[in-house]
Write a protein that binds this DNA or RNA. Structure first.
Lengths: 142, 142
DNA sequence: TTCCTGAAGTTGTATAATGCAACTAATTTG
DNA sequence: CAAATTAGTTGCATTATACAACTTCAGGAA
């Protein structure tokens, strides 16, 4: 039963994982880094959220999110608004500057991926995206 | 032209990238870590190689590979053999213990992936593996 | 042969991303 | 009201990486 298929996925995932953690500090390119990108995107899509909810949804430790949010606040990409109903809690709200940066960074990423799949058929791109999404959902479950 | 397909790939790749860099030191599970895994695999498949060649093939800095190789040597998974023809160079050779660990670690990884794709059809697994491989090759080029 | 250039490898230092544990302050519950 | 819980922060540790400076050796040029 599909042992070799599994083996390919396992191997290629290892390779991909390593490539994706290659440091290369994306100097000068943009002010956003890949860590805070998803956090900012979440705030863009879902509106204002607190550290707790963000950490849960991103499946990260609160300490990590807390730091990422602080970084974004320093850069002026989000505002930190005290929750009027809970003195311990805050909402992080994306700013106009944050939206601009987010879009810029997204565009830059998309150009990179465009170059990588430029010889691929639409069918392949569609399948790849769909399966990646499905895989991520499986990862998210367990 | 396939802008939305590209967008999906871009997004899902960001999510995957983050999940794959989650630290969770795989305590007690095995003595091998994901960094040295590919290095050891390379030595298993291709025979004895030096730091330079390994660094080139793995697309890593020599300093990184040098440290990883030293770690593997400490654990007894590789032997460091001076190159008789070049006083500066060495060959790293996988040991029997190294092979055992490699196989164990690979099995553990495969079980994890098996769980993730257990509801997938063989066609989906095949396509996912193939496209991952194709994507990695594109990454390798540029 | 000697000298200079370059190559293989190592080590020091820096950076990025993360988690765990201890802490603070505020809220909720009994 | 006191105790337990929760939101968030901060200190510390770990993993993975790159760049730069260094050491030792090799190989060609003068």
């Amino acid at each position: 039963m599909k042992e070799d298929l599994l083996e390919t996925i396992e191997l290629e995932m290892a390779i991909l994982g390593r490539r994706l953690t290659s440091v290369t500090p994306n100097k000068a390119q943009t002010n956003l880094d890949r860590a805070t990108y998803l956090l900012l995107l979440k705030l863009f899509v879902q509106g204002s959220l607190g550290v707790k909810v963000l950490a849960t949804e991103l499946q990260l430790d609160m300490s990590t999110v807390s730091r990422q949010a602080a970084t974004l606040e320093h850069k002026g990409y989000v505002n930190k608004i005290p929750d009027p109903l809970d003195g311990r809690a805050y909402f992080y709200q994306i700013t106009e500057l944050g939206k601009t940066e987010l879009l810029t960074y997204k565009q830059m990423r998309m150009e990179k991926f465009r170059g990588l799949v430029k010889e691929w058929s639409d069918e392949e791109c569609e399948a790849f995206g769909r399966l990646l999404k499905k895989f991520n959902q499986a990862l998210h479950q367990k």
